[in-house]
Write a protein that binds this DNA or RNA. Structure first.
Lengths: 171, 171
DNA sequence: TGCTCATTAATGTCACGTCAGCAATGAGCG
DNA sequence: CGCTCATTGCTGACGTGACATTAATGAGCA
């Protein structure tokens, strides 16, 4: 398991001598940043009607697929809030979408699940997800998507986020 | 100029019927998020010794290349803080790295530049940038980078972030 | 000139993401 | 049992990022 402060698969000790870097690499980094920002902005817009944020939606959708989960387990499945996503879950509990049940055996843990109100949101969220997917990827060919997915997976190999997504989409 | 809430090149009116979406599209979105997060985390780590954040470093590097800039111009060149990045600049001014000069002709504007102390940081920041570039991209082949760059540019075509990066890297 | 409208920058509000630190609990081991 | 250590979840501090609103200024036009 890599340390928290690991990038993209490179532990601090094995960093490359930063020699072979071109401006394109920098542009690629900022393009990734920009794509993520614009995507998030759009997603936010779509979710505004439901009064949900992208992070909250991610949690609800993961719970819909894999509840019950402890807070730590959930943290290992989502990209957001790498540690324990207590606070985001907190808001969802306050709004009555997520339930928190103290563990019987291990009384440190809390089991999370969707309330009825939370479950009712799921179809809408899936719909929005699909719309955002379509908006984000419709300009890419199938081949391009494949290359990007493979490349990004490789970049993320050995990171916490990478592990989370591997479990989530292929675990 | 597209409206602020435009994604990835799709204005709200011309959205696709979200039909042809696969799980891969969703994975791609989350991979983009994860790559950006891990990259930012790493960058943060590298910058910690300088007591700077990635957003602050971006601003210093842009100013190094194109000062003087008004706040609005700067906002159009960076990916962060789409509106006027008053507050981030504020901290940099307080720490003595950026200077703010009221405009003589148009007294609404403020001209931003690097102080001597700010300029001294630039080489170090460029070094860090190169290191992060290397760490992020060294697992990708040249071809893969090309495909990703082209694809991302296309995704961002017509967005504010896309315009910012186009100006910055090819303007 | 006087009016209206656009632009620029600043600010308040909200929700995160990161980090560090903490309390409670559980597990391993003598 | 008693000690130590790891894990789980919570919380405070800090710095964004998004959005809306506002104040000041400039530009266009009758």
């Amino acid at each position: 398991m890599p340390a928290a402060n690991t990038v993209v698969g490179v532990s601090p000790e094995e960093q490359l001598p930063a020699g072979a870097t071109t401006q394109e690499d920098t542009e690629l980094r900022y393009l990734l940043l920009a794509a993520q920002r614009e995507g998030a902005r759009y997603m936010s817009g779509q979710l505004r009607a439901l009064n949900l944020t992208p992070a909250q939606a991610e949690i609800i959708l993961v719970l819909a697929q894999r509840e019950p989960l402890t807070l730590a387990e959930l943290g290992r499945l989502i990209v957001c809030e790498s540690n324990s996503p207590s606070r985001i879950v907190d808001t969802l509990v306050k709004r009555g979408m997520v339930s928190r049940t103290p563990g019987q055996v291990d009384r440190r843990v809390v089991y999370l699940g969707l309330t009825e109100q939370g479950q009712e949101l799921v179809p809408k969220l899936q719909e929005i997800d699909a719309a955002v997917d379509a908006a984000a990827a419709f300009r890419l060919s199938s081949d391009e998507k494949q290359v990007m997915i493979r490349g990004l997976r490789r970049m993320l190999d050995g990171t916490v986020s990478g592990a989370a997504l591997a479990t989530r989409f292929h675990g």
